[in-house]
Simulated scan of single mutants.
Amino acid sequence: MDKPHMAPWEQAIFDGYTAGKKPTYDELEAALLGALRERNAAKQTTVSIAGDLTEIVVARMRGDTAKVLAAVDAVIAKSVKIVTTPSETLQ
């Protein structure tokens, strides 16, 4: 069975656990710091998405179609990356 992709701190804890070892304090500290970094990144992403969505919803509630489209275009420009291979065409 393939293991899922893991951050280095996750891998260290996982490897030790599967080998029957208790994690060291350094490993636990690294795991905590890694988990906090991931949580902070997720929180920033959530706040950003909430801000974008708020802008779209408020514009829609006010009936401002131009602002809705502008906000959606801004989200696409900021967040969407389209990658194609030479054999693919974007339609």
Rank of each mutant, 00 (worst) to 15 (best):
L90T: 07
S79L: 08
V72A: 12
L32E: 14
V83D: 09
D15H: 01
L90R: 10
M1S: 09
V47H: 02
E88I: 06
E27A: 15
M6E: 09
V47K: 04
Q11T: 06
V57P: 00
A19W: 02
L28D: 06
L32D: 12
A77H: 05
D64R: 11
A41T: 14
T18N: 01
Y17S: 11
E10L: 02
K43F: 09
T46L: 15
A74Y: 02
I13K: 00
Q44W: 06
E55L: 05
L53I: 12
N40K: 09
Q44Y: 08
R60V: 03
P4I: 04
L32K: 12
V68W: 00
K43D: 15
D73C: 04
A31T: 10
V47M: 06
A66R: 13
G20T: 02
P4S: 08
D15S: 03
A66C: 05
L36W: 12
V75E: 05
Y25R: 13
G63V: 03
Q91L: 13
L33R: 15
L90I: 11
T45C: 08
R39S: 13
V75W: 07
I82V: 15
A35T: 14
L90H: 06
S87I: 11
V75C: 08
D15I: 01
K21P: 01
M61H: 12
P23I: 10
A71Q: 00
R37H: 14
L36F: 13
V57G: 00
V72N: 04
Y25D: 15
A66M: 09
A70H: 03
A59Q: 05
S79E: 14
T18D: 01
E10V: 00
V72Y: 01
G63N: 04
V68F: 01
K78P: 00
W9I: 01
R37I: 10
R39H: 13
M6T: 04
E10C: 02
D26H: 09
A66W: 03
Y17N: 07
A74W: 01
L32H: 12
V68Y: 01
E38T: 10
L53V: 14
K22L: 14
T46S: 14
A19P: 02
R39D: 14
I76C: 10
R37M: 12
D73Q: 12
A74M: 03
R62D: 14
T18P: 00
A50C: 04
V68I: 10
Y17G: 02
T24W: 05
E10S: 03
A71W: 00
G20S: 02
P23V: 09
I76E: 12
I56M: 14
A59M: 07
S87K: 13
F14A: 11
L90V: 13
R37T: 15
Y17R: 10
D15K: 01
I56G: 03
A59K: 06
A50D: 13
I13T: 06
A7S: 11
S48Y: 08
A19H: 02
R39P: 03
E27C: 07
A12P: 05
T54M: 03
K22E: 13
K67Y: 01
A7I: 04
S48Q: 12
M1Y: 05
G34A: 07
T46H: 08
T85G: 04
